[in-house]
């Protein structure tokens, strides 16, 4: 579903992503982990065309993305969330998700003019139920607490009806109960709805519980890949994380 081949991106002298290769298989949850600054978000931004790679190739759903613009991904069925929340903060919860359904509101003139386009409004309401925001549909997005804002971003991404979902730290800042709900939702999306998820996450409890495969990055490069259990035992990984802990101490 996603094939990254020898991806490199330099910011001036800084090599943010260094010769990274990665294959995400259909209907799996593939986690991308690593210490802060490892290049995970940069990799996401290359896939979603916000950044242009210095070299390397990315194929999504069998298509080379190099000729695509950022707005071409949603129509292909690729949705993403952002590490530092990029909600439409001044708009209502409902309108945020409606805008997520933008590419499905383009049918005829009536559909384009509708404030509540009949083709999508049912799905939008369903998504709000699914992430537990139905009762907040008229609240302003920026007035929600942090956890709900994260769920709103997820609902907005799902309104694209994606086949591929790129999630950048969806559990960061969530409470345990909320992480549990996210865990169930992601499982359901993959098992029942057939989505493919590339997940950047620091909450190891979630990564280890739901990922089929884990790629570990450090200083822009891949240092390990395997099942959650394999990765956990890998000495390079332990060292990367311990090194970070030591640095923090």
């Amino acid at each position: 579903m996603i094939e990254v081949e020898n991806l490199t991106l330099r910011f001036g002298g800084l090599v943010a992503v260094n010769d990274l290769s990665l294959v995400v298989r259909p209907r799996t949850i593939h986690a991308l982990i690593g210490p802060n600054g490892a290049g995970k978000s940069t990799t996401f931004n290359c896939i979603s065309r916000l950044y242009r790679p210095t070299s390397g190739r990315i194929r999504v759903l069998g298509r080379d993305v190099s000729g695509l613009r950022p707005q071409d991904l949603a129509p292909l069925g690729v949705a993403r969330t952002f590490q530092n929340l990029e909600l439409f903060g001044g708009l209502s919860v409902l309108e945020n998700v409606l805008i997520g359904a933008h590419v499905h509101c383009g049918g005829g003139l009536r559909e384009r003019l509708a404030a509540r386009p009949p083709a999508v409004i049912g799905h939008v309401e369903h998504l709000l139920e699914r992430v537990g925001l139905a009762e907040f549909r008229h609240a302003q997005a920026s007035a929600l607490d942090f956890g709900r804002q994260k769920m709103l971003e997820l609902a907005r991404a799902l309104a694209i009806r994606p086949r591929i979902l790129l999630l950048d730290e969806p559990a960061a800042g969530l409470r345990n109960r909320e992480i549990g709900a996210l865990d169930r939702l992601l499982n359901e999306l993959v098992e029942r709805d057939g989505l493919t998820v590339l997940l950047v996450e620091h909450v190891m409890q979630l990564v280890m519980a739901i990922s089929h495969r884990v790629t570990v990055m450090n200083f822009g490069a891949r240092i390990a890949e395997g099942t959650p259990a394999e990765v956990r035992r890998d000495p390079l990984v332990v060292e990367a994380y311990l090194g970070q802990e030591a640095a923090h101490a």
């Binding site: 979603s48 916000l50 952002f82 805008i99 933008h102 509101c105 386009p117």
Partner: peptide
């Protein structure tokens, strides 16, 4: 109230997110 109006507001609030929504 239309799709275009929503797109206007999306661009106003965050053009990066608007792009990710296919706008």
């Amino acid at each position: 109230r239309s799709r275009l109006g929503r797109a206007f507001r999306a661009v106003r609030e965050s053009d990066v997110a608007a792009m990710a929504m296919g706008i």
